[in-house]
């Protein structure tokens, strides 16, 4: 049960760690949804053409990076509104993946490659969950114990300080976006490689929920981990409820969004009380 929740929380947690980079750098990253989907599609695409787990995952990271590059180019170089450009990514990527899917596989639906590598697992947690946990530790170290991490956090809080030290906050923010793109790409790869298939819209709001998990966790890593586990557990309970309470599955799809909204509202009310 616990290991199941941890396994399911891994893609969300990984995306949230990526989002933490952008969030601390002062970038509102709503493009994560599109990046995750891109990663998921790329991973299945590559493994369909014989790529192993590692190759598929790396290619997914690369695809996420590329998406993030477009996002940062339009947001920073072309000085677009970060929210609109993020939406652009979220609209563009599902459409592009559907088009490529049509061109390569002849359909826009579920893609199910014939042979997929088995994902090794120990102690109930698979390779990706272990990787995510290790990554979380690494992110904690990088952000709070290294000079680049300090620079990154400064770009979110003290832009002028960075400028006075001759560092361009924009460059730091671009780097943060690129890192988050890679991590979201891998997060997508975890989703699709575990399932062994690509399903259109399979990111299912994960990018948004990751963002809210960051807010709910007060932008601190332990809090974010707790929030991710909470969301995953809530999802698991909703799935259980489906069987027991006879809630129709199409209605359950709305739960993550409403849970997230409630979390957000609760967070805001608590914050207001504190002041």
């Amino acid at each position: 049960m616990i290991s199941g929740i941890l396994n399911n929380a891994a893609p969300l947690l990984l995306a949230a760690m990526g989002g933490l980079f952008t969030e601390l750098a002062g970038v509102l990253n709503i493009a994560m949804e599109g990046m995750i989907l891109t990663g998921a599609f790329t991973a299945i695409l590559v493994s369909n053409f014989g790529g192993g787990l590692l190759t598929s995952t790396l290619c997914a990271a690369l695809a996420g990076l590329l998406t993030a590059w477009v996002f940062s180019l339009t947001s920073f170089k072309l000085r677009g509104n970060i929210f609109i450009t993020g939406l652009g990514i979220n609209i563009l990527m599902p459409a592009l993946t559907a088009s490529f899917s049509q061109k390569i596989f002849g359909n826009q639906g579920i893609i199910h490659p014939g042979s997929l590598r088995h994902i090794p697992s120990t102690a109930g947690l698979d390779l990706y969950t272990w990787g995510t946990l290790a990554c979380t530790g690494a992110v904690m170290f990088i952000l709070y114990r290294t000079y680049p991490g300090l620079t990154l956090r400064a770009s979110g809080r003290q832009k002028d300080l960075l400028k006075s030290k001759g560092i361009s906050p924009e460059k730091v923010q671009t780097a943060a976006v690129l890192i988050s793109g890679m991590m979201c790409g891998i997060s997508g790869a975890i989703l699709s490689l575990r399932l062994g298939a690509y399903v259109p819209g399979m990111s299912a709001g994960k990018g948004w929920i990751a963002l809210v998990a960051i807010y709910l966790g007060y932008k601190k890593i332990p809090g974010i981990v707790a929030a991710c586990i909470f969301f995953t557990a809530a999802e698991a309970i909703a799935n259980q409820a489906q069987g027991i309470l006879q809630i129709p599955p199409s209605l359950i799809l709305s739960f993550p969004y409403f849970f997230t909204l409630m979390g957000l509202g609760l967070f805001a009310i608590l914050k207001k009380r504190r002041q």
Partner: peptide
């Protein structure tokens, strides 16, 4: 292909620049 959505996405990426 999802041409409409692709155009829309590109437009969103550029429109606020």
């Amino acid at each position: 292909l999802e041409l409409g959505n692709i155009i829309q996405g590109v437009l969103f990426l550029l429109i606020s620049s």
